[in-house]
Amino acid sequence: MEGSSLLMLIYVFVLATFVGVELINKVPPTLHTPLMSGSNAISGITIIGSLIAAGLGEITASSIMGFVAVVFAMINVVGGYLVTDRMLRMFKKK
């Protein structure tokens, strides 16, 4: 994907937002907390960018920031998915 794709990226953003709205509107109120923590974990996807920044090879301001970003994003990802799983395991039907 090279630079000229700005419009493509915006397309993707707009369409994904529509998909998100359609899907989230169907989530029942009883699952709103796990929905939040679970979607929170998804927003940890920014880990992709931080991995590349942390792996630049030399120790620079960028790689240090990348390292901190890996830690932050990983807390977000691991903490988010695990706590969501912990909550959802508690939901039982009679």
Binding site: V12, A16, M36, S39, I42, S43, I45
Partner: peptide
């Protein structure tokens, strides 16, 4: 895509 989903949520 992931960001937009969470943003919408």
């Amino acid at each position: 895509i992931a960001g937009a989903l969470v943003g919408a949520s």
